[in-house]
């Protein structure tokens, strides 16, 4: 079928519009860059503005930075911060010990159980912390049916708090570890290690764990952040954690809560940066081999 010159010209023009070939490439690049900057500015503003406002409030005392010096001079601040950090590290260690072998075993030996495990790990999203803590007090407070007065000692209550935090961090830690395991051919690695004479502890500590290190670290970041800011469980178990301290401060002081908020932000980021540095120090890289 023949086409008139007009038809051909309009077709070419339409194609040019459709493919964008009619516009100079630099225009498009400039437009894309503009959109990129707008999105970035909105994101940064959303994140930084509240922090800046908090900073402004924290400077509200007659003497600049007085709220900060007051905070640093308060022993309760340091104690609660240290207490929460210790709880966070305990939670991370317990979570790794519980979740890495579980996720590994589920992937390797019982893949059918994975949906059930995933469901269990999502329960903390369904059961609110206040319900969880009342359940813990009910069961481990010394009353029936168990008659175990775990909450009657500081150590017992702290242990219970860490146990509750392990439950709270389940969805984050499990998903991180499971994603890490998905990226590694764990069956072949396990079998290769076995054929070379390695037993299960060697396989887990020297083959599997180092290869999901980054995933475990990202789970650890989230867990650390959750524990440092957690209020409900620590408060009901009467623990001197950072969350209840922050709440107490908010009720009794004007400018210090803002200062403490920013300090806690800074310290949490510092802790995360340290964990990231430790992670980066370990060499190696995970590669995924495509098998037809």
């Amino acid at each position: 079928m023949s086409q008139s010159p007009t038809t051909i010209a309009s077709t070419v023009a339409a194609q040019a519009v459709a493919t964008g070939s009619g516009k100079p490439g630099s225009h498009r690049r400039r437009r894309d860059r503009l959109v990129w900057w707008v999105v970035l500015i909105i994101g940064v503003t959303y994140f930084v503005l509240p922090l800046f406002a908090t900073f402004q409030v924290s400077l509200g005392m007659t003497v600049p930075f007085k709220a900060y010096t007051n905070t640093f001079n308060d022993p309760k601040f340091w104690y609660s911060l240290l207490y929460s950090a210790v709880c966070a590290i305990g939670t991370i260690l317990f979570s790794i010990a519980l979740i890495v072998p579980t996720a590994y075993w589920a992937r390797l030996k019982v893949p059918r159980a994975r949906p059930a495990i995933e469901f269990i790990t999502l329960l903390p999203f369904v059961v609110p912390p206040v319900v969880l803590v009342f359940g813990l007090i009910q069961v481990y407070g010394g009353g029936p049916p168990l008659g175990l007065p775990i909450t009657s000692t500081d150590l017992g209550s702290t242990f219970l708090l860490i146990a509750a935090y392990v439950v709270l961090s389940l969805p984050y830690m499990y998903r991180s570890v499971d994603n890490g395991l998905r990226a590694v051919d764990i069956q072949s690695l396990t079998e290769a290690a076995q054929s070379l004479g390695a037993g299960w502890p060697t396989i887990i500590f020297r083959v599997i764990l180092p290869n999901v290190r980054l995933s475990v670290l990202s789970g650890a970041f989230l867990t650390f952040a959750i524990v440092m800011g957690e209020y409900t469980i620590a408060n009901f178990l009467a623990r001197p954690a950072f969350g209840p301290y922050l709440s107490f401060l908010g009720r009794t002081k004007t400018f210090e809560p803002a200062a403490v908020t920013l300090i806690s932000f800074g310290l949490t980021w510092l802790a995360m940066a340290m964990i990231a540095l430790i992670g980066r120090k370990s060499r190696g890289r995970v590669t995924v081999v495509a098998v037809k």
């Binding site: 079998e191 290769a192 076995q194 054929s195 037993g199 083959v207 290869n211 190696g284």
Partner: peptide, 21 residues
């Protein structure tokens, strides 16, 4: 006999080298 006690070497299609080593 469990695999780690057989002293049998195995080479896999996917190489299965330990990426961290």
């Amino acid at each position: 006999t469990p695999p780690h006690d057989r002293n049998v070497g195995m080479v896999f299609q996917s190489y299965a080298l330990f990426p961290n080593m």
